[in-house]
């Protein structure tokens, strides 16, 4: 049980660190696209670790309490929430980036913008 707790604390630490990196990235970066980089990648990764910490704890209790414990529902539903989060986050980031570019947001400090050239052709 103690090894499980140590692993859970490590996962919580990693998850919170990356969530904070994503939150501060929203303030550090200059424009929408770079903010999307920070927001999408870091919060997805951090949430994976935090939910995995929850899954580890509830699966540990499930193993102690036996097959028909309510923790089985908690474990499986947490994993489903994780899958839903991973699939929707990447697609949502794509939609937001496209909407930002079509509404006329310029990438700040950009060297090249191929998409801009296409629209001018």
């Amino acid at each position: 049980m103690t090894a499980l707790n140590v692993a859970t604390y490590v996962f919580i630490g990693i998850g919170l660190f990356f969530n904070y990196v994503g939150a501060f990235g929203l303030h550090r970066f200059p424009d929408v696209y770079t903010r999307l980089h920070a927001a999408t990648k870091c919060t997805t990764f951090g949430s994976i670790f935090l939910i995995l910490a929850v899954v580890m704890q509830s699966a540990g209790m499930w193993a102690v309490e036996g097959t028909h414990s309510p923790q089985s529902i908690m474990t499986i539903h947490s994993l489903l929430a994780l899958v839903a989060l991973m699939v929707t986050n990447a697609t949502g980031a794509h939609a937001m980036a496209r909407a930002a570019h079509r509404s006329g947001e310029k990438p700040a400090r950009a060297v090249v913008d191929d998409l801009e050239k296409k629209e001018n052709d």
Binding site: V32, S47, M96
Partner: peptide, 29 residues
């Protein structure tokens, strides 16, 4: 508006994670 939308989506991700943590905290599936 796009920046606000990005921040809002990030907040949504964190709310989902917080709900899972609260479920474990209160032991409510």
């Amino acid at each position: 508006a796009p920046t606000r939308l990005v921040a809002f989506d990030t907040a949504n991700t964190l709310v989902v994670t917080s709900l899972v943590i609260l479920a474990m905290s209160f032991n409510e599936v």
